[in-house]
């Protein structure tokens, strides 16, 4: 049997990476920021939101419900229906159609993408009104 010395030597040449710095991103210590325009969790600028319900209409996953806010004080005066969108992250697919159709650009996607919870019932969130993951045993970044 002929031994393929060249092939074996070629494969062994990858050992040189032992002496080079690792390419690993050391995640919790060094964080790589998401790119501009990354499609992360939602944010809603309530001073702009006019409650038109376009986002609810276009979302085929029924992830968006229009609900009454806890207080009307911080609503936009032009908000015709007095309603703001509420997101269900058990439905959302981050397609960003809702932000594309938003006529006043109040609904936006942020760069945050970490939301970990121990309870499956806790993925409902009203952007702008409450902070994502303010409860215990949740990780948000």
């Amino acid at each position: 049997m002929k031994i393929d010395i060249k092939g074996i030597w070629g494969a062994l040449s990858s050992l040189k990476y032992l002496f080079q710095p690792p390419g690993t991103l050391r995640y919790p210590d060094v964080k790589k920021e998401a790119a501009d325009g990354y499609r992360g969790f939602h944010d809603n600028d309530l001073s702009k939101c006019i409650g038109c319900g376009m986002c609810e209409d276009i979302c085929m996953n029924l992830a968006i419900d229009m609900v009454k806010p806890k207080s009307e004080a911080y609503l936009n005066a032009k908000n015709g229906s007095g309603l703001i969108p509420r997101l269900d992250y058990g439905r959302c697919c981050w397609c960003s159609l809702c932000t594309d159709v938003c006529p006043v650009n109040s609904l936006k996607l942020t760069k945050n993408y970490v939301y970990v919870s121990e309870d499956m019932n806790r993925f409902i969130y009203t952007p702008g009104e409450e902070k994502l993951g303010k409860r215990e045993k949740e990780t948000v970044k």
């Binding site: 939301y115 121990e118 993925f123 990780t139 970044k141």
Partner: peptide, 22 residues
């Protein structure tokens, strides 16, 4: 019985790591 849930579609590797930390 689910212990930890990570939101996202799909969750990025960072989020998956956070899930493991949780």
């Amino acid at each position: 019985p689910v212990d930890v849930t990570v939101a996202g579609c799909m969750p990025r590797p960072e989020a998956v790591l956070e899930g493991f930390m949780a």
